[in-house]
Design a protein around this nucleic acid. Structure first.
Lengths: 197, 197
DNA sequence: GTAGAAAAGTACAACGACTCTACTTAGCGA
DNA sequence: TCGCTAAGTAGAGTCGTTGTACTTTTCTAC
């Protein structure tokens, strides 16, 4: 797939990064996040601790390796949506489309468990999404020709970005995403008792 | 006002806590959050660093001193609402009622500026609210007799708790809170161009 | 009042995340 | 072949935070 690395240097750099990420993930899954120090990871990957921080901004970033460019995809989904489609529908479709890939990991279950059972990782994961509130709301505001800090735009951006967080861990994520977008589209309705969970 | 401290010990304890919080706030406002170490604060308050952590769970908690018991108030607003009032209306009223007190600080402007210009503090402030998602959603679910992890209940709890975050820094917070609750009640509507900001 | 429990505070050492500086090494381009 | 640059290393240092063992203060019960 994506192998734009031409030079040997870039290849080696990527290899080092990968070695660190792999070592980190394995150790985290084995012992738990708090029971693994940066030094442990550096030793396992056979690099110095300084090198770890050359590749990753902090310990939490080691867990969420391929953070990718969610931001640009998000903006594109709004800007390049089919004419006539509402922004909320475009975002709903985008979330439904790009999401299965994330759960396709080999050790998805253990990984989810690791994140959910480590408070600092839960917090980091939530921030990964809400970090894009500003750029998403700016894109939405542009579509309507209003100020970037328009309250309705900031609000819907934030609410939409909460949806992945809320849907995580649900048995039927597709249905959950749909229900959450319905709340934003039509307003909240009290739950019905019978269908339960 | 609230002076339930009877014993001298409790009074002294509260005094040292206050001394630490005061010293911390002053230093933070003077130099900025990152330019002040725990040792600086401890020295200014004439206590040891260990004492600082006896009173506050971490450096960020020094900024948000009177965190109070927002949680119990929130639950009470749902549980003890007037009969016939919807949960969303009860929460809207609760937010509108209990909020002016927070902005009544003497150095409110500088304080807001401090928080907004320090990423770690922004993150902490957001988490202060969303931390109560679980208990609020449980209370809401109880009102309807559904499971605690009912999606609609978790979602509305989370969205409501985002409202204070979204309304912070707005010129007319009351109006902002109202508009945000309207989104949750009736669904999102695209912004109109003319009224602008 | 005084003894002793209980809590607040201190000094000090330690750990882990992270940064900085100066140095070495390896790939790249001429 | 000769630098230039970027990757990596070693090692010391800062800072937040915790744990341990000790002193001081206050409360309580005799």
């Amino acid at each position: 797939m994506t192998v734009p690395s031409v030079s040997r240097r870039d290849r080696k750099k990527a290899a080092t990064r990968q070695a660190i990420a792999d070592a980190a993930l394995q150790l985290f899954l084995e012992r738990g996040y708090d029971q693994v120090s940066i030094r442990d990871i550096a030793d396992a990957a056979d690099v110095s601790t300084a090198t770890v921080f050359k590749h990753f901004s902090g310990k939490e970033a080691l867990v969420f390796d391929q953070d990718e460019d969610r931001e640009s995809q998000l903006i594109a989904a709004v800007r390049q949506r089919p004419s006539g489609q509402s922004i909320l529908d475009a975002l709903r479709q985008h979330v439904l489309d790009t999401w299965p890939a994330i759960g396709a990991h080999p050790q998805a279950a253990e990984f989810t468990n690791l994140v959910n059972s480590t408070p600092v990782l839960r917090a980091y994961a939530e921030r990964m999404w809400t970090r894009y509130t500003d750029s998403l709301s700016a894109a939405i505001a542009d579509e309507f020709g209003v100020d970037h800090d328009n309250l309705a735009c900031v609000a819907i951006a934030r609410f939409v970005l909460e949806i992945p967080v809320l849907a995580r861990g649900r048995q039927d994520r597709q249905a959950a995403v749909g229900a959450l977008f319905d709340i934003l589209t039509h307003g909240w309705e009290p739950p019905s008792k019978s269908p339960g969970r």
